[in-house]
Amino acid sequence: MDIDDILASVDRGPGASLESAALDHQLLTRFWVAERAVSEVLPWPAPLMERIMDRVRIQIETIEDLAASSETTLPTTANTHNPNLNLRLSILQTDLARSQYIVRSLLRARLAKITKYSMHYLVLLASRNKNPLASQTQSTASSQNPNQQPEDSVPDISELTDLAPLSEPETSFLHAHQTLLAGHYAGSFMGAFPRQLRRLDDNAGGTSMIQGPDLKEVVFVRCLGAEVPVVVGGEEEEYETGVTMRMGDVWVVRWEGVKGAWGRGEVELL
């Protein structure tokens, strides 16, 4: 046990942990619904998921302790305590299963999106953390390489530190998945192509081969702030606003128009 653990245990005092258990559960539920509703992978809420997984671990221990005590005390107190103990156990287990279901569904939804748009996220991650000089030399080197393989177009992301929106395991899964896929493509059909056509991130003729999530798709949102304007275009563009949503309203709008407001917690996806 080091100083960080002690500080953490003080931070999570008994009173605070009860309050935040309910709050974290609500945050997790909302994040799950949001992740299910949009086409892109949302930023990984690392602190929240850590807290949730800690609680799940503690809850499993509690249930195991209770189950063990019910077996040991069975002969003596069978008539008085056992019905209640069984009830408590079944309630705790149902609650645990519900939380685990949300976490599992959340992770699977993210994995599905990551595999669907794997090249998009690899290029996104690689482009953010690479200095432009290095990538240039690499691309010229690879285009001259006579033995160009599809695997070569999978960017190396082992040195990255900023992994947003993915978590660390998701990033390594993404890289391994795409490398395998590129190897499979090479073995099954791409090896027979002329070598300038073997890249998976080909953008000859102004058409990119990489498919990304469609941010213009519509989503259902509830406005939680007092007034939230819908932004025209993405966040990078100018701050041009369209209609204004008022508190409590439910709207059908483009995801890119409310993405910023979602990040600030002013709208909720439904």
């Binding site: 213009k216 519509v218 259902f220 819908v230 932004v231 025209v232 275009g233 041009e240 606003t241 369209g242 209609v243 949503m245 409590g248 309203d249 439910v250 709207w251 059908v252 709008v253 483009r254 128009g257 439904l270």
Partner: peptide
Amino acid sequence: AATGGGGVALTGVGSMELGEDRGFI
């Protein structure tokens, strides 16, 4: 809702009603 910055209000709609028509809308 198909134009940028536009939208359609469905205030008062229920969750299940939304789920039923989500794919269509």
